[in-house]
Structure formats: C-alpha cells, structure tokens
Amino acid sequence: MEMNDPLRREEKKEPTPDRKEGGPSAPDVKRPGRDDILKRMKKVDPKQSEKYKQRTGQ
C-alpha cells in the first residue's frame, strides 16, 4: 500500500529527501475555524442521547 504522512509533513519545516519514512499520510491538516460546525452543534437535540436506547451487545 502506498502511503504518505501529512501529519509528519506538517511538522517538518525542512524537507528531508534523504530519509524515507514509511507509513500513511493524509492531506495537510488545516484549521479554518469552527463557526459552521459550532452552529450545527447548536441544532443537535439535547435529548438525543436520552432517546438513544440500545440493547447490550458483545
């Protein structure tokens, strides 16, 4: 499986082409702000977890 590592890349200030690091990567992590998601969270039913009844599983 071909892999790259976005988290590692984000932390590296300088590229290190001589060092081959294994493992997966993901796109560069960005933090554009949370306004949209916080607005959505406000719309969540406060009783949702109370209504969420499950049976015991394994």
Binding site: S25, A26, P27, D28, K30, P32, D36, I37, M41
Partner: peptide, 19 residues
C-alpha cells in the same frame, strides 16, 4: 461531527480515499 471535521480538513485522514 467527526465527518464534518474530516471534510473541512481539521483531522488527519491517514488512508487515501482510493484505497
């Protein structure tokens, strides 16, 4: 909520979508 964070690039995805 996790999917929202993922879609806006707030968390690491690790595995490429084609995989």
């Amino acid at each position: 909520l996790y999917y929202s964070l993922r879609n806006q690039g707030d968390v690491a995805g690790l595995i490429e979508q084609n995989k």
